[in-house]
Design a protein around this nucleic acid. Structure first.
Lengths: 159, 159
DNA sequence: AACGGCGTTAAGTTGATACTGAACGAATTA
DNA sequence: TAATTCGTTCAGTATCAACTTAACGCCGTT
């Protein structure tokens, strides 16, 4: 592997690590992002020089988050992983979901907590409104983007 | 402090922790979110039953991220902290900035790395376009939201 | 100048978790 | 059935960072 690619993979490792994921997960993602074909677990482990166990657990973790997808090959019982075509939508949806969990905790405070202060109540209400608005906008934009992408793909004849 | 509030604070602690921040930072945020007035460092330390040092460092961390703001009081040299009125915009902008750093790393790969595969190049290009589009939409919506908020505030006579 | 309150900084401890190596289980082949 | 080749899981370690305690520095007051 060339120097620049190795550096990019390391950057992705640090980037995803700052996002709360294991560094190896980021490296796997980085490598697959610039790989033409899907890679097997052993392939990933060899290329990244890490243990097979780490690759196994982290690949599954990324798959669960929609960052990777598992594919099979005929007459091959190995697990292959690659970045999905809808990577962007997946991660975006994931972010929205996490964001919503946080939002629900905040807004539930308005009703569940014994708050008497009007200022605090108004603060929580405004925060809830802001979230609801932005969330709706993002969801709509994402849906429109997906629709336009699908349209392009069909025109271009992509399966 | 009542049971429900304590639980809410703990929830915020875990929520921000899953976002890469120290748990105490989340607790400080949770407490101030449901506090009517700004609180001093000692006040926060006593209420949360943590060391003054932790409160000091974490409060400054949150201030740097736009989650908290520091305020002063006449004839009082203590530091008081509170959640800013534009909390939502601040955190949103922060998220966008972090997202952009990640995005730049990905798109720079398209030009800096010796990639020969057309599939990979197209993948990176599509990802870049998707990011640019969504980023623009979010930025616009946020600006419009801020404008409408400011409008409401002036109508309501808020300083 | 000495004292006390306040915030920050530094060293040390502790807790969490990423990662490895090895054992295990399942599926395939000989 | 024995032997391989996969993937997963488990126990152990090692690293990292949050948190605490203690010391420091600064600013006001007496």
């Amino acid at each position: 592997m060339d120097r620049a690619t190795a550096h990019f993979i390391e950057t992705m490792g640090l980037a995803l690590e700052s996002d709360g994921l294991p560094r190896i997960a980021g490296r796997i993602f980085g490598l697959l992002l610039v790989s033409e074909e899907a890679r097997s677990l052993d392939d990933l482990a060899a290329e990244l020089q890490v243990s097979k166990a780490s690759v196994s657990t982290n690949a599954r973790l990324l798959e669960q988050r929609g960052v990777l997808e598992q594919v099979g090959r005929p007459a091959d019982r190995r697990d292959y992983y690659q970045v999905p075509r809808d990577l962007f939508s997946n991660t975006m949806a994931q972010r929205l979901a996490r964001w919503q969990r946080f939002h629900e905790a905040v807004t539930s405070a308005r009703t569940n907590l014994p708050i008497q202060s009007p200022e605090v109540l108004q603060r929580l209400e405004e925060y809830g409104e802001a979230y609801a608005h932005m969330s709706r906008v993002i969801r709509d934009a994402l849906a429109r983007w997906q629709a336009s992408r699908k349209n392009k793909m069909s025109k271009a004849g992509v399966s």
